[in-house]
């Protein structure tokens, strides 16, 4: 019996069964996805994926961006470059301008610091509550990705006071922030930025934090 052979560990039958499971699994997956693609709304995904990070807008020259730094902003995919800028708010006069776009905007520490100093940004901490409690950028609210993903009403109800949203997370390329940024855009918010480098970069530079007592 094949089963007994497997029990006694004859390698050839184990590998045959491994191949059987893998082939069957692949076949089931492909069929399931095919059915899903035909459903409405589509439940499956395309066979081949596209690089979603290419959809991100990177705010140019983060070191010098200011009212004079506008030239450093790249204008791709926009017919009228100036149209995407929101009417300048007096309170934001000295701040780098964040274009009003339908995709997340990546910003870096110098820009984040300017917004922090001028209280011109709506800071969102995408990390888990325990990390948030241990220390955060002062004035930020805690919105972990998994909370946000399950609570669209909460996302829509955020009152940013017209300020751009600045999302940060636990460092690296902040992909959690990026995913949260897409959720916020889908919820109807505009000027959604995420801070590459996140909280570690903020702390490393010795900037002010709160919490963690």
């Amino acid at each position: 019996m094949e089963n007994e052979a497997a029990q006694q560990g004859r390698p050839d039958s184990i590998f045959r069964n491994v191949i059987l499971i893998v082939v069957l699994g692949v076949a089931l997956g492909l069929v399931h996805n095919l059915v899903g693609l035909k459903s409405e709304p589509a439940y499956g995904v395309d066979w081949i994926s596209v690089d979603r990070t290419e959809d991100v807008f990177v705010l140019g020259d983060n070191d010098a961006a200011g009212p004079e730094g506008e030239d450093d902003v790249e204008y791709h995919d926009v017919d009228d470059p100036m149209a995407m800028f929101a009417a300048p708010d007096p309170a934001e006069a000295d701040l780098p301008q964040i274009p009003d776009m339908d995709r997340p905007i990546q910003i870096q520490l110098p820009v984040v610091k300017k917004f922090f100093d001028a209280a011109g940004g709506y800071f969102v901490d995408a990390r888990e509550p325990d990390e948030f409690d241990l220390g955060r950028i002062p004035g930020s609210i805690n919105l972990p990705f998994d909370t946000a993903a399950t609570d669209p009403v909460l996302l829509e109800s955020l009152d940013t006071g017209g300020r751009p949203i600045i999302i940060y997370c636990g460092g690296g390329d902040c992909e959690v922030s990026l995913n949260l940024a897409w959720l916020l855009l889908e919820a109807g918010h505009t000027r959604v930025t995420y801070f590459q480098g996140g909280y570690p970069a903020w702390v490393q530079n010795g900037y002010e934090i709160e919490g963690g007592e």
Partner: peptide
């Protein structure tokens, strides 16, 4: 996407094989 489509099903079959004891060593190896 190909991995996302197929890997969970391989996991499912391997898990079932272990749980139900059908060719458990092959499922366990996976």
């Amino acid at each position: 996407n190909l991995v996302a489509i197929t890997l969970p099903w391989i996991e499912l079959l391997a898990g079932l094989s272990l749980l139900l004891g059908i060719r458990p060593r092959a499922g366990g190896l996976i």
